[in-house]
Simulated assay, not measured.
Amino acid sequence: MELIDGKEVAAALKRKMAEEVAVMERKPTLVAILVGHDGASETYVGHKEKACKEIGFNSAVLRFEDTITEDALLAEIGKLNDDPQVDGFIVQMPLPRHISEQKVIEAIDPRKDVDGFHPVNVGRMILGLPAYVSATPEGICELLRYYRIPTAGKHCVVVGRSNIVGRPMANLLSDKEFNCTATLCHSRTENLKEICASADILVAALGKAEFVTADMVKPGAVVIDVGITRVPSDKTRNGWKLLGDVKFDEVAPKCSYITPVPGGVGPMTIVSLMKNTLLAAKGTIYGK
């Protein structure tokens, strides 16, 4: 069993991007919109700011109270769309209930949608056209590339059908770069255990702690754990610990490769956002 080290891969990719940015006349600029004071969102945006600094990007965070109206937030998005100094921006999810996340996503200029959530980018990705690919699926693809994991003709099972991870992941793995036979499963899938156990590559993206157990994993399979759930623990100083969707201790001995939680997919999500921002600054996808 080999551990897939997302921290190591992310660090290598950030070093490579930093070398490229160092010789650019104009540094890429990434802006994040943060609404409210959600702790997880604050932490995630902080990680993005740190990554921007490490690579050499300009960055800014626009903070708004959770009382901001939908119209006011859409107006702020419009300003960023029109600002030639901003290469890409994200609106950190989740948003307050009175704001439609879909309206917000669709309001973002696809050319600046470095999260890869806009229907234009999703559609282009599905068609195999150049697009900003959502960060977590692209991060997983980078891990497969870095570790040179054989994928052609392999059966890949993705558990979880979210628009952010599951659906794009299945599409990317079935595309010509990876040439997997992809099966997309979810909570209503019959014989889920048996389908998972047939997978050469298993991507767990349910958001349910330790859902995948050893009897759901084929010997020698590659297991990618996307889930991250905070649970109480009397064994840690802060009183909680992070668990993935995979029961790591019992599944890991059966695998050829497996990602840990934390330190697996998480760091790759950040670095993929940075990659999209660099592409936006260079005009690689849509031109300038």
Rank of each mutant, 00 (worst) to 15 (best):
I4T: 04
D5P: 00
V9K: 01
A11D: 10
L13D: 04
R15M: 05
R15D: 15
M17H: 08
E20P: 00
V21S: 10
A22D: 12
E25H: 13
E25K: 15
K27I: 01
P28D: 07
G36C: 09
T43H: 11
Y44R: 04
V45R: 02
V45M: 04
H47L: 14
E49M: 10
G56K: 02
L62E: 12
R63E: 01
D66T: 03
T67F: 04
E70Q: 15
D71L: 02
A72L: 05
A72M: 08
K79F: 06
N81C: 12
N81H: 13
Q85N: 14
G88F: 07
F89K: 03
I90T: 10
L95Q: 08
S100G: 11
E101N: 08
Q102G: 00
I105C: 07
A107I: 08
I108W: 02
P110N: 12
V114P: 03
D115K: 08
G116M: 06
F117N: 07
H118C: 04
H118S: 09
P119Y: 06
V122N: 01
V133C: 01
V133P: 01
V133Q: 03
S134K: 01
G139M: 03
C141H: 03
R145F: 00
H155F: 04
V157G: 10
V158M: 10
R161H: 14
I164L: 15
I164C: 09
G166T: 01
R167L: 11
M169F: 11
N171W: 14
L173I: 06
D175F: 00
K176T: 06
K176Y: 01
E177R: 14
F178I: 12
F178P: 10
T181A: 04
T181P: 03
A182P: 06
A182H: 06
A182F: 05
T183L: 13
T183E: 14
L184C: 07
H186S: 13
H186C: 07
H186D: 11
T189Y: 07
N191Q: 13
E194Y: 12
E194T: 09
I195G: 03
C196L: 12
S198L: 02
S198F: 03
A199Q: 05
D200S: 11
D200P: 06
G207K: 08
A209W: 07
V212P: 04
T213H: 14
A214V: 12
A214T: 06
A214P: 09
K218M: 04
D225H: 14
R230V: 12
P232A: 14
P232I: 09
S233G: 04
K235T: 10
R237H: 11
W240A: 12
W240V: 08
L242Q: 02
L242C: 05
D245F: 00
V246I: 11
F248R: 10
F248Y: 15
D249E: 15
V251Q: 10
K254F: 13
P260D: 04
G263Y: 07
G263F: 06
G264F: 02
G264V: 02
G266T: 02
G266S: 12
P267W: 10
P267L: 12
T269V: 07
I270S: 05
V271R: 05
S272A: 15
L273H: 12
M274G: 02
T277Y: 12
L278W: 13
L278M: 11
L279D: 15
A280M: 13
K282T: 07
T284R: 05
G287C: 03
